[in-house]
Amino acid sequence: MIAAAVERHGRLDVLVANAGVIPLLEITEASAEDWDHVMAVDGRGMFLTCKYAIEAMTPAGGAIVCVSSISGVAGQRGQAVYGPAKFVASGLTKHLAVEWADRGVRVNAVAPGTITTERVARLRDEPGGPEYLAAIEQLHPMRRLGSPAEVAAAVLFLASDEASFITGVVLPVDGGYLAQ
């Protein structure tokens, strides 16, 4: 993927590292296979994407924005497998930011709350879905879910020149969830 982008455009300036599978499992329900699958996609995928992007960005520099989650900053029920994988995204952001700042690569992350992705929107038509979504909305102080456009705006800012002195930040886009 990285090589294809460099071949097509001549260089790589920005990477949005966004990978994730979200099983809602308590630890007693999760298997080692569940853990391995989520870590392979969410953890290893994030690591490899950042690794090859940084190799392509040096020496000219660039910006990486990792997609973490509120589950990658704070504990949540039913997130014993997904949450730790998103802690990888948050941690990798901070470590890479320190390691590569002096070589012109900025690394930041966004930590979305619950966002009305296509999958979340489909919950409204599933048994128990409307009640589940209403309960999730109440967990966010703004009493609503976020939109993909709101996350995209935060990613765009962190990837832009307007954020040229920002690195190592995990920016919540969560309607106040993490401020509680």
Score class of each variant (00 low, 15 high):
Thr93Ile: 14
Val6Asn: 01
Ala134Leu: 03
Asn108Phe: 12
Ala109Ile: 11
Ala40Asn: 10
Ser31Trp: 14
Ala32Lys: 11
Arg44Phe: 12
Pro59Ala: 04
Leu158Ser: 00
Met142Asn: 08
Ser31Tyr: 14
Arg143Pro: 05
Ile54Pro: 07
Leu24Arg: 15
Asp34Phe: 14
Phe157Thr: 09
Tyr132Asp: 00
Gly43Leu: 06
Asp36Asn: 11
Thr93Trp: 14
Pro141Arg: 02
Phe47Val: 12
Ser90Cys: 07
Pro59Gly: 02
Val81Cys: 06
Thr117Pro: 02
Gly61Gln: 02
Val41Lys: 10
Gly175His: 08
Ile115Ala: 00
Phe47Cys: 02
Thr93Asn: 05
Leu171Gln: 05
Val151Asp: 00
Ser160Ala: 05
Ala53Met: 09
Ala40His: 14
Val173Cys: 07
Arg103Gln: 13
Ser69Ile: 12
Leu133Arg: 03
Ser90Glu: 02
Ala97Phe: 14
Ala97Val: 10
Gly45Gln: 02
Gly75Phe: 15
Val88Ala: 03
Ser147Cys: 09
Ser69Trp: 13
Pro112His: 07
Glu131Ser: 01
Ile64Cys: 05
Ala56Asp: 00
Phe165Asp: 05
Gly45Asp: 00
Arg143Asn: 06
Gly10Trp: 13
Lys94Leu: 09
Arg106Asn: 03
Glu55Ile: 13
His9Ser: 05
Ala109Phe: 13
Leu139Asn: 06
Ala17Gln: 06
Ala163Gln: 04
Trp100Lys: 10
Ala89Thr: 12
Ala109Leu: 08
Leu156Gly: 09
Arg8Gln: 05
Gly43Ser: 04
Ser68Ala: 08
Ser68Glu: 02
Ile115Gln: 01
Gly113Val: 08
Ala111Ile: 12
Gly168Cys: 04
Glu29Ser: 10
Asp174Cys: 08
Val67Glu: 00
Leu12Asn: 06
Glu131His: 03
Ser90Trp: 15
Ala97Ile: 11
Ile22Gln: 15
Val88Leu: 09
Val21Ala: 06
Arg124Asp: 00
Gly78Ile: 10
Leu123Arg: 04
Arg124Asn: 01
Arg103Trp: 12
Val14His: 10
Arg44Pro: 05
Arg77Ile: 15
Gly72His: 08
Ala74Cys: 10
Phe47Asp: 01
Asp42Gln: 06
Ala152Ser: 06
Asp13His: 15
Leu15Glu: 02
